[in-house]
Every structure is written in structure tokens, then in C-alpha cells.
């Protein structure tokens, strides 16, 4: 889907060992598979089925997503930042596409 666009909010800096709040939003229809088109034919399911956040290769959160997650999926969660490094956010689409976003954080 060409219109899929991730947005991520991560503070630019943190002190070592600090717990920070992260918010993520991605534009995606999250077609549930429960709907029908105007001709009455079922619209096939196409959702993002998994979201992960890792920091310097270690996992923060790994979410298994079902069709009951709203259109334009939103997550808010917390991470510990042991050192400077990079967050990697990954969304997995039913159609095999993978969307990623990265954010660096400095210690200061």
C-alpha cells in the first residue's frame, strides 16, 4: 500500500537508564475481512498483523495484532534507554510488506 506512512514520537535525549514514553501511529486501513463491498462480496482481510519495537537489537515490545485494532493503528508504551542508540519500529502487513521507521536517541 503506497499510502502507508508511519509516525513515531520518541524523545531526542534521555538520561542513561531512563524510562521514556513512545507513541506510534501508522496509516493503514486495517481491512477486517468482516465487511462487504457494494455488490455484497466480502472484502478480503488485509491488516497489519504484528508490530515490534527494538532498541539496539533488544526487544521493547512485540504486539500480535488482530482485525479489532482500529484503522490507522496507534500504540503507546514505555521503553528503558540504557545507552545512546537507535529504536527500530517494524509493522508487518498481511500482504507481506514490512514498514520500518528508525529513531535515534542521545544520552544527555
Amino acid at each position: 500500500m503506497s499510502d502507508v506512512k508511519p509516525r513515531v514520537r520518541v524523545p531526542k535525549t534521555a538520561s542513561a537508564g531512563e524510562t521514556i514514553t513512545i507513541k506510534t501511529l501508522i496509516s493503514h486501513r486495517m481491512e477486517s475481512g468482516q465487511r462487504k463491498d457494494s455488490d455484497g462480496n466480502p472484502i478480503p482481510r488485509q491488516i497489519i498483523n504484528r508490530f515490534t519495537c527494538d532498541f539496539n537489537g533488544e526487544n521493547v515490545i512485540d504486539v500480535k495484532m488482530e482485525p479489532a485494532i482500529s484503522t490507522n493503528p496507534y500504540f503507546e508504551f514505555q521503553a528503558v534507554v540504557p545507552a545512546a542508540g537507535e529504536f527500530v519500529f517494524t509493522w508487518y502487513d498481511d500482504n507481506g510488506e514490512v514498514y520500518t521507521e528508525t529513531k535515534s536517541i542521545a544520552i544527555g
Binding site: 506512512k5 509516525r7 501508522i26 496507534y74
Partner: peptide
């Protein structure tokens, strides 16, 4: 950030 309308502004 919480406003889903802003996704479309980005687009």
C-alpha cells in the same frame, strides 16, 4: 500525535 487526521497532513 494523537490526532489521526495529521497522518493525512503528512501525506
Amino acid at each position: 500525535f494523537d490526532n489521526p487526521g495529521m497522518i493525512f497532513v503528512d501525506q
